[in-house]
């Protein structure tokens, strides 16, 4: 299904049509080139689960999954991703259930304010799909792109290790 966004759009001459499949739905937007993927998600598509922490690539709060890879939506222009498939925190558990990582984050008390959480979870999904981390030290290193200002890091890593090990992590 192709949904034209009803949000205000720019009609300036250098705006172009950008097609994205977001959380399984085809979207078509008319955007100026300077609109970042992060602003497009939050401002044009009302998908505010993806957070803007620093807007400069330094915190990981804006992490989304693009064509299967975790990336920072704040340092990507939406036009660069024309034709891509994007999964945001809103789309990780399509059936309405919680994703195993969401459950583990709750069980492990892996957040306080919750601002970094969507980015942490999208990043962890990307990290597990990459399959490059075997030990806890490797998981920590490959999750270092997501900062938690509340300092819930220990519980975040515990939650991810539980899911990575099929629920048997102590």
């Amino acid at each position: 299904m192709l949904t034209e966004t009803t949000k205000p759009i720019s009609h300036a001459k250098n705006a172009s049509t950008v097609s994205l499949k977001i959380n399984g739905e085809d979207k078509s937007l008319v955007l100026k080139p300077w609109v970042t993927l992060l602003d497009c998600l939050r401002e044009n598509l009302d998908l505010t689960g993806t957070k803007k922490g620093c807007d400069h690539g330094q915190c990981g709060a804006c992490t989304v999954i693009c064509d299967g890879k975790r990336i920072l939506s704040c340092l990507t222009l939406a036009v660069m991703k024309d034709g891509s498939e994007i999964t945001t925190i809103e789309g990780i558990a399509p059936s309405g259930d919680l994703h195993p990582l969401q459950k583990a984050f709750i069980e492990h008390d892996a957040f306080q304010c919750g601002y970094c959480t969507p980015g942490q979870i999208c990043s962890a999904i990307g990290m597990l799909a990459e399959g490059k981390a075997n030990t806890e030290a490797e998981v920590k290193e490959l999750m270092s792109g997501n900062l938690c200002r509340c300092g819930a890091n220990t519980n975040i890593i515990n939650a991810i290790m539980e899911v990575k090990n099929g629920g048997n992590y102590e």
């Binding site: 992490t63 920072l72 990043s123 990459e130 270092s144 792109g145």
Partner: peptide, 9 residues
């Protein structure tokens, strides 16, 4: 260098 997300980009 950088982070896993940045290296993917």
């Amino acid at each position: 260098g950088a982070s896993a997300q940045i290296r993917n980009m």
